[in-house]
Simulated scan of single mutants.
Amino acid sequence: MTVQLDDVTVHFGRTCALESCTLTVAAGETVALLGPSGSGKSTALKAVAGFVRPSSGRIRLDGQDVTELPPAKRGIGVVVQQYALFPHLRVEDNVAFGLRAARRPKGEVTRRVAEMLGLVGMTSYARRFPRELSGGQQQRVAIARALAIRPKVLLLDEPLAALDAQLRADLLIELQNLRREVPTLAIIYVTHDQSEALALADRIAVMRDARLIDLAPTTTLYQTPPSAFTASFLGNANLLPIKSSNNEVTVAGHVIPGVQPISGKELLCIRPHAVRLGAGGVPGRVTGVQWRGASYQLTCEVADVLVRVDLAADGAVPAVGADVQLVLPSEACSLVSR
């Protein structure tokens, strides 16, 4: 099922929570809405679900206008951060809730509950209550409940935000498996975590100040971000002011070979892992060293700008105060607007 937001705007009183958002998500596609708190991403998801009514614009599912349709009539599965399981119902009854509300035959309910619990690896927990489950297990049950009604669209609103690091990693794998198990499912995934977006999404929509500002396939957006905000928010890129002359790009007076000037692009973007230390690079001075287990991250000052550099933990690491030269490979560089 195709999901369309057509110039959707949402106001809460005088506050604009979402402004002129236009987005299409195809069947079988996962689109991540990525942005900081207050950027409008959850409001966009709630508009699709029917939980909030647009002030203007239309919501369409497979071309059908559902803007005025109540949530229960849209056939959409929704999973939120707080799990929202019924505490007085056992796991199997939570998963069956939507099916029973739709008055599906008892045999179908039993079959679908067993199928969904098996899909998320929770079959042996069917008779437990939510209070007897871990946070990760509760979230799996919430996903099973959302999928039990056979939705063609699944909306996930910060589903891993309340979990610890290991549980987040485990559920990311579960969600990747889910995409393979249900290949026609259209998924909108709201998150402020770039690693989740990179792991799951076919495309990423970057949101800021209630607007969708950048939208592209995940690899494209990561490798060649169109704006400074997207470059820094997605991948924590280094952004260095440049000067252009004689068809060359310079950083701190040093020519970056292989990088051509682009009109309107005033910053050079490069990820910390792509920067190398070596002769012939941009001169800088180490101002900080952080050990991160498998790697070190250096902070280097280059012409009043701080540049992050990732180094392998098994190599030589310069000390704070050391003068270094930063090699910026042209294949890892892109130019972005401010």
Rank of each mutant, 00 (worst) to 15 (best):
R180Y: 06
G281H: 10
G57Y: 09
E108D: 10
F51C: 01
T224C: 06
G38N: 15
L33A: 10
V8K: 08
P241K: 02
K243L: 08
C300W: 00
P130I: 13
R211F: 05
I242L: 02
K152Y: 06
G278Y: 12
D202S: 10
Q139M: 03
P241I: 05
L45Q: 07
A169Q: 13
H11P: 01
E115R: 11
A231M: 01
F233T: 01
R74Q: 06
G280W: 14
L45M: 10
R90A: 12
V309P: 01
Q139C: 04
A210W: 05
S20F: 04
K41M: 07
G57T: 07
I173G: 00
A252P: 12
V141I: 12
G38L: 15
A169M: 12
A17H: 14
T184P: 00
G253L: 10
A72I: 04
R131H: 15
G281E: 08
G284L: 11
G77P: 09
R150M: 13
Q138L: 03
H273L: 04
L311D: 03
S134Q: 14
L171F: 01
P272K: 04
D164P: 00
L172N: 08
P241S: 06
R60C: 14
P261L: 05
A197K: 01
D93C: 05
A161Y: 00
S124A: 14
A84Y: 03
G118S: 09
D193Y: 00
E331Y: 04
Q166M: 04
V3T: 12
E174D: 09
V275Q: 03
L215D: 05
I59D: 02
E301A: 11
T224K: 11
G28N: 15
D209L: 08
T230D: 02
R271D: 01
L221H: 05
D209R: 11
T30L: 15
R145Y: 05
A313D: 11
A312Y: 08
A102V: 07
D157W: 05
P225F: 04
